[in-house]
């Protein structure tokens, strides 16, 4: 996808680390020298509702922060899959959390859907909360939008200060996702 703007949708329940996964990508872009613009949904619906982040990545200047359709998606729960699949462009890669999503829930047959048993894998690693980073690993391997080293750089920036202790489990979650396929 070089030269073109990558428009990524990350969606799931509030609490699944949707915004965090977006921030890791955005931090990684700084290290990779790419332009990035991230917009999280905000509103009166965060707790228990769906959380959504849209991240635009490009070698060029990023103009509109309003993104209507995306060309890459990472979806972590069933309601988000149903709600947002219509905003994904034809033939786009879509990484779904198959622990919580039945792929038959969308009528779209023109998407390149890859299921990852992310929640169960995260439990095996030892922390259910790293399912988002496992999926990020799969996404980076499948699409090559960023170098894996810049993601680990992004993880270092995201898990700094008081959160530093969480870096290693997230780094190994990323590696296990990256090495999955």
């Amino acid at each position: 996808m070089a030269g073109k703007e990558t428009k990524i949708l990350i969606a799931g329940f509030g609490g699944q680390g949707i915004i965090l996964a977006g921030n890791v990508l955005a931090y990684a872009c700084i290290d990779a020298g790419k332009n990035v613009c991230a917009m999280a949904s905000y509103g009166a619906e965060v707790r228990g509702g769906t959380a959504k982040a849209i991240i635009s990545i490009s070698d060029e200047q990023i103009d509109s922060p309003i993104i209507e359709t995306v060309n890459l998606a990472m979806i972590m729960n069933a309601p988000s899959f149903v709600r947002y699949s219509s905003s994904i462009e034809k033939d786009s890669p879509v990484i779904v959390n198959s622990s919580m999503i039945d792929q038959g829930q969308t009528e779209r047959s023109d998407l390149d859907i890859l299921g990852v048993d992310a929640t169960n894998l995260a439990i095996k690693i030892g922390n259910i909360k790293v399912a988002n980073i496992i999926m990020l690993g799969v996404m980076i391997k499948k699409t090559g939008i960023l170098d894996p080293d810049s993601i680990t750089g992004g993880l270092k920036r995201a898990f700094s200060g008081s959160k530093k202790g969480l870096y290693y489990i997230n780094e190994s979650a990323f590696r296990s996702g990256y090495d999955l396929y």
Partner: peptide, 10 residues
């Protein structure tokens, strides 16, 4: 505005 304020950019 609500978008410029919420936008995350380097």
């Amino acid at each position: 505005d609500g978008i410029i304020g919420q936008l995350v950019e380097p």
